[in-house]
Simulated assay, not measured.
Amino acid sequence: MRVNNLKKDFKDVEALKGISFEFEAPSFVGVIGHNGSGKTTMLEILMGIQTATSGTVDYSNEFELKDMKENIGVILQSNAFYSNMKVIELLRLFKSYYKDTFEINYLMDKLKITDYQNKYYDKLSGGMKQKVNLALAFINKPKVVFLDEPTTGLDPRARHDFWTVLKELCNDTLLFLSSHYMEEVQKYCDKIVYLKDGELLYAGALDKFFEQQESKDLSEIYLRISGGKDDGDVD
C-alpha cells in the first residue's frame, strides 16, 4: 500500500496534514497517537469509509481499487449489527457478500466460538464479541485488514486470546491496528505509523524508530513525545 500526501479537512479542522507512507505485506502496522491525532480518520479513508480532501491511496500492488471491498477486512471501534441476529446468522450473512471465503466451521473452530453460534451477538461478552468480529473481518480471506482499537476494554486474558488468534489468521496479510496499549504494539507489531495533531511523526520499521529515539521502550517514548495530550476533536 502506498499513501501519498493524504489530507482531510472538517470545516476548520485539519484532521490529516499530508500523510505519506508505504508498506508491503506481510506486516503488522501499529497506528499510534493521542485521541484527536487523526488515527481513526486515516484508517477510515484507507478502508474507503471516508473520502480524503486530497492525496492518494494506492493498492495497485495487491488489487485494483474497484475490488477493494472484496479484499479488505475491518473491525471498527463500535459495530452496529442487527440486535436479533445470532452469531451463525451473522457469519452466513457476511459469507454471502463475497465470492471467495473461509468455511464458517473453520473460523468458528479457529476462534473457539462454535459453542456460541446460536447466541445473540449483543448478548455476548466483550471478548467473545471481538472473536466474532475477527471471524467477520477474515471471512473473505482479506489481503489488507484494518482494526480500530480492537482490544480496548478487554481484560488481559481476552487481549492475549485475541492476539493469539490474530497471528494465526494473518498469513501474508498487511494489518493496520490502532491501539492505546503501547506494550501490545511493541510486542506484536513490526512497523508503526505515529500521528500527532494530524501530522506524521514517523512511519516505518519499529526497530529503526527505537534507534532514532535511543530507547527500546515504546511506552516511554510515547509519553515523552505525546506528553499528557489525550483529547481532541477528531480521532
Rank of each mutant, 00 (worst) to 15 (best):
R2F: 02
L6E: 01
F10Y: 15
K11H: 12
K11P: 01
E14N: 14
A15G: 12
L16P: 05
I19L: 00
I19M: 01
P26H: 07
P26E: 08
V29I: 15
G33K: 05
N35L: 08
T40D: 02
E44R: 13
I45W: 00
L46R: 06
M47Y: 15
T51C: 00
A52F: 00
S54R: 00
G55L: 02
T56Y: 00
D58W: 00
D58C: 04
Y59H: 04
K66E: 13
K66I: 12
D67R: 11
M68V: 08
K69D: 13
V74Y: 14
Q77T: 14
Q77M: 05
Y82P: 03
Y82N: 14
L90C: 11
L90D: 12
D100N: 14
T101S: 06
F102W: 15
F102I: 09
F102A: 09
E103P: 02
I104F: 06
L107F: 04
D109K: 13
I113Q: 06
I113F: 10
T114A: 08
N118C: 04
N118G: 04
Y121I: 14
L124H: 12
S125I: 07
M128P: 00
L134V: 05
N140C: 13
V145H: 05
F146Q: 07
F146Y: 15
L147T: 11
D148R: 09
T151L: 07
T152E: 08
P156L: 06
P156T: 10
P156R: 06
A158V: 06
R159Y: 10
D161G: 02
F162N: 07
T164I: 03
V165L: 07
K167C: 11
E168Q: 14
E168D: 14
E168S: 13
N171R: 14
L174Q: 06
L175E: 03
L175V: 15
L175Y: 03
L177F: 03
S178L: 09
V185Y: 04
Y188W: 13
C189F: 08
K191Q: 14
I192M: 03
Y194N: 02
L195W: 01
L195H: 01
K196D: 14
D197P: 03
G198N: 05
E199M: 08
L200T: 06
G204S: 03
D207K: 14
F210W: 07
Q213T: 09
E214L: 04
E220Y: 08
I221V: 11
Y222Q: 10
R224K: 15
R224M: 11
G227S: 07
G227R: 07
G227V: 09
